[in-house]
Deep mutational scan, measured.
Amino acid sequence: LQAFIKTLTGKTFTVEMEPSDTIENLKAKIQDKEGIPPDQQRLIFAGKQLEDGRTLSDYNIQKESTLHLVL
């Protein structure tokens, strides 16, 4: 599935991932794409901060969901 990552500066980019991917995997993909170390990334979806060990499906993240990236 493709999801949108929106930063506080208003920049939006897309990442490809599977519902079974962990938040940790997602942070690694963001690092590959944007060069931001995972330990500096905080991802917010539906008002909740996402925990590394959980999966996208745990948070009911669907295709074309928008996640907010806070540094």
Rank of each mutant, 00 (worst) to 15 (best):
L71M: 10
G53D: 11
L69R: 00
T7Q: 05
G35H: 06
D32V: 13
E24I: 10
P19S: 11
D21F: 05
Q49S: 10
L1T: 06
T9M: 10
E64L: 12
K27M: 03
D58F: 14
S57I: 08
A28K: 15
Q31P: 00
F13K: 00
I44L: 11
D39K: 10
K6P: 02
I5K: 01
V70S: 08
T14D: 04
E16F: 13
I61C: 03
P38W: 11
Q49L: 15
L56Q: 01
E64R: 08
T9Q: 12
N60L: 10
S20E: 11
D39F: 10
D39E: 12
L50H: 01
G35F: 04
Q62S: 13
F45E: 00
T66S: 06
T7K: 04
R54A: 09
L8I: 13
N60T: 06
F13M: 04
Q41G: 02
V70Q: 09
T66F: 09
S57D: 09
L8P: 14
E16C: 11
Q41A: 04
I36G: 02
K6V: 14
Q2E: 08
V70Y: 13
I5M: 02
N25K: 15
L8A: 14
R54F: 13
L8F: 13
Q62R: 10
Y59T: 02
T14C: 08
E24C: 07
S65P: 07
L43A: 00
G10I: 03
Q40N: 09
Q49K: 08
P37C: 06
P37F: 04
P37V: 05
N60V: 07
I30K: 00
T55W: 05
N25Q: 14
D39Y: 12
L8C: 15
Q62Y: 11
K48M: 13
F4E: 06
L1E: 04
P37T: 05
D39L: 09
L1I: 15
M17A: 10
Y59I: 07
T66A: 06
K63A: 15
L1G: 06
D32Q: 14
K27I: 02
A3W: 10
L67F: 07
R54L: 11
I23V: 13
L69N: 00
R54K: 14
N60H: 09
F13C: 02
P19G: 08
